[in-house]
Design a protein around this nucleic acid. Structure first.
Lengths: 338, 338
DNA sequence: CTGAAAGCGCTAACAC
DNA sequence: GTGTTAGCGCTTTCAG
């Protein structure tokens, strides 16, 4: 237990300079004589002095803390590996830039609203990264009212992009690629399991519809099911779809695809021979599945990285035009399609 | 965009009292006249004033921020649902107590050491929760040197508990229960897939060994495999075990059990008829598995909750005797045992 | 029970 | 280039 009480003042005394000089040295200011810089740094190293974050925050109005807001009900957060992976990517970037990451999970919309209002009010964070591409997002309106800096993971609803910063993924193209591949492999009665309340999911389904139309195949509502991102919903919706005998299904999430696979197994329907399955994400479960999933890979890690970098740019220059990115996706062929 | 610049000073003026009084009201001080209290609160509500966190921190030397340190390589963090669930539980408790949670993931030991040193140095956090029950923990020694408050999730190595605060789970008992159940169901050649570098895993395996001995069954090293918590290691170790023809295996983690199941499926070995599988955790994959896993449930959520509460007690009273808890576990029978 | 005033440790003008 | 001096917004003695 060392009870240090080193302040910038003490360092200044020891080095025989002013507090201001110490501060400048520590903040890498341009015009300082090498002599003083060295003198200060020596004392700093000898004493093991570290600046007090809080005092810096108060004086500089900058905390180097970024919040990660995950409004989705907490149940999603640990039932779908998407969020852990995203968090991991963000954390990596955060560490690289010497920031610290605060995590906000909500267990009810009320909690979310309350917490976000708090974040805004106490002005502790340099900015927040907001995940979730739900339609009717309840967080966004609150944040928009404030002057809290934020970047979104996933796009806002079409038409309301304004000059919001967001990092999205090419969900629409991904949907097209998936269905095009299915057609290419000879599948014809292609179903889809989507999720109506999610923007990304909608985009993927839109890709599905467009490809069918482009190929002169009618879009059959009977072949379109509506899940909720959970594995169970995948299983349930697949069951419904089965009644209409699809020969392939585009499940817009690996996790839901796992559920679909379960249903298929229960019905002794062979994948990929009796029915082809293609999904979206390429998370670990895609490989762990049996058969391994053909899927559209989205660069989750990169999304996190980019979100942090965008945040940093935003902090440096609040006036810069918004960063609106759509990261490319990639077809990964495995064993769930023939 | 409302550009509020409400300070305690302004509130004091509006309410016609001193800053100190406002501060006292806001901090629920005991002896204030109802009249003043009310006057202040009215102004606060009307204006929507919120205290500035940072200023409070500086003045009070308390941040209400708790760090969650997850030293395990980041790959574990998103390949095993354990951490997401733990994080979720902690987050819930954090929110309930009006704290904020900072998340620290490391991508290399160096990063971990550096970050932890930083946490200690800048004195920003009221305390940290440290997960991971690795033997030879590299974080612990650093933290012990400092006066940073911390509570561990998972126990430290035996003999070094001292007066450390930790929230563990009854891994040893869990191991015993698992193997006792296997014996009860008539299995006799029982193998185990453990993990040598993890304390919790060791405890579970110790339970395994002891039950066998207690029942006069020799502990056969050939039936003991060493995984690393990954699904792949489960698959790999099961393959090795197969050479020695176990009729049941206690896999000390759901995730590894999933891997084991994969191997078994590949070899057309039927679970639970040809071989019984029992695991530990009871995470979502346990239900998603085919067959669903008989497993020992550990209360991950509760662990998080307790860790936060312990932290809070520690902050209030640093001198209190250490809280060393072992939460009970529970047998959950499903379909992977006959 | 309430107010005045002194900091918490640092940064950021402003002078020199 | 470097030092001086105000604060940042709040809590917390210390009087009264």
């Amino acid at each position: 237990m060392k009870s240090k009480k080193l302040t910038i003042k003490k360092i200044a005394e020891l080095a025989g300079v002013s507090k201001a000089t110490v501060s400048r040295v520590l903040n890498d200011y341009p015009h300082i004589s090498d002599e003083l810089r060295e003198k200060v740094m020596r004392v700093v190293h000898e004493t093991g002095y570290e600046r007090n974050h809080v005092a810096r925050m108060l004086a500089s109005n900058r905390s180097n803390m970024i919040g990660l807001v995950i409004p989705s009900g907490a149940q999603f957060v640990f039932s779908d590996p998407y969020f852990p992976k995203l968090t991991e990517g963000i954390s990596r970037a955060i560490n690289q830039h010497g920031l610290t990451l605060a995590l906000f999970l909500f267990h009810s919309p009320e909690e979310g609203i309350h917490t976000v209002k708090n974040i805004i009010a106490n002005g502790l964070f340099d900015g927040v990264i907001i995940t979730g591409d739900r339609k009717n997002d309840y967080i966004l309106p609150i944040v928009l009212e404030s002057d809290l800096r934020f970047v979104m993971i996933g796009r806002p609803e079409y038409g309301s992009e304004g000059n919001l910063n967001f990092i999205d993924v090419d969900n629409y193209i991904g949907g097209k690629i998936a269905v095009e591949y299915l057609l290419e492999r000879g599948y014809r009665r292609i179903g889809v399991i989507g999720c109506s309340f999610n923007i990304a999911a909608n985009d993927r389904v839109r890709g599905y519809e467009d490809v069918l139309r482009e190929n002169g195949i009618p879009v059959d509502p009977n072949l379109m099911a509506d899940g909720d991102f959970s594995m169970d919903s995948g299983a349930r919706e697949m069951k419904k779809l089965l009644a209409h005998k699809p020969d392939a299904v585009f499940v817009i999430t690996d996790t839901m695809a796992l559920g679909a696979l379960r249903t298929l197994r229960e019905h002794d329907i062979c994948v990929p021979d009796d029915i082809g399955i293609i999904s979206f994400d390429d998370l670990p479960p895609a490989i762990q599945a049996d058969p391994q999933l053909t899927t559209i890979r989205q660069p989750i890690h990169e999304q996190g990285q980019l979100a942090v970098e965008t945040m940093l740019q935003l902090i440096d220059n609040p006036e810069r035009p918004a960063n609106q990115v759509e990261l490319p996706v990639e077809l990964i062929v495995r064993a769930s399609t023939k």
